[in-house]
Amino acid sequence: MTARAREALARAEVIVGYRTYIDLVATLIAGREVVVNGMTGEVDRCREAVERAAAGARVAVISSGDPGVYGMAGLVLEILAAHPRGREIPVTIIPGVTAATAAAAALGAPLMHDFAVISLSDRLTPWEVISRRLEMAAAADFVLVLYNPRSHGRPDHLGRAREIILKYRQPSTPVGVVRNAGRKGEVAWLRDLDTLLELPVDMVSTVIIGNSQTRVLDGRMVTPRGYRL
């Protein structure tokens, strides 16, 4: 969490968010009105936030990581654009630390060159689209960052993604997995593409798959930028 995010929470009169994220900041928002719901309630949650703001309240909508990376910022702006008073409601999007950079820091420096971030969740994006993006990004030798890699409802998506990537990468390609990146209980593993599926990957894990230049140096995952040493 950035200092600006903490300041926004301290100033907010109403806090709106997904239950898991509300629990993570519970000590920072004690005594304030909280609007909370579960997964799949994103639209209702953001509409409620806009209505509270339209009524004059200072509202904070919280997301995991950065609100503009698979977060609530875009949805709030869409709802504001359709609201009769949307142009009158000031909005500030406050950056946070997204899982890609938090996980990269835990692993070493795997994102020192071009990389692509792809979510494996097909709740809002068809798998056909996801698989094509994986194919193109792997063929282009991007370092790959995979969000939402595995859940109870889609236990096979990571394996399917791995099969696509193996068409363009060696099985020995370094892979890092970080669970709870930047949060209490953070744990990181370094493996390779061949053994990736042996790791306990779940929805709070971030997977970083190296490109053809990525190496493991003294236990740290590094993608060289190309500097002369």
Rank of each mutant, 00 (worst) to 15 (best):
P149H: 02
A139G: 13
A109T: 07
S119Q: 03
F142M: 09
P174A: 07
P149V: 09
A138I: 10
A140Q: 02
A109W: 01
K167M: 11
I165H: 05
I164D: 02
F115N: 10
I130N: 10
G176I: 01
V175I: 08
L158T: 10
R162H: 09
A139L: 13
A161D: 00
A103W: 00
V175E: 04
G159Q: 15
I93M: 12
E186W: 03
G176F: 03
H157Q: 10
W127Q: 02
L146E: 07
E163M: 13
A138M: 14
A140D: 07
M112K: 07
T101R: 10
P95N: 05
W127E: 00
P155H: 09
G153R: 12
D114R: 04
L158C: 12
G176H: 09
S119V: 10
L111N: 01
G182K: 06
Y168K: 04
I118T: 07
L146M: 11
T98W: 10
T125Q: 12
K184S: 14
A140C: 08
R160G: 00
R160D: 07
V175R: 02
V117S: 14
V143Y: 06
L134K: 12
G182A: 04
A100W: 01
P126T: 10
S121V: 00
M112P: 09
V177S: 03
D156Q: 14
G108H: 05
A106Y: 00
E163G: 02
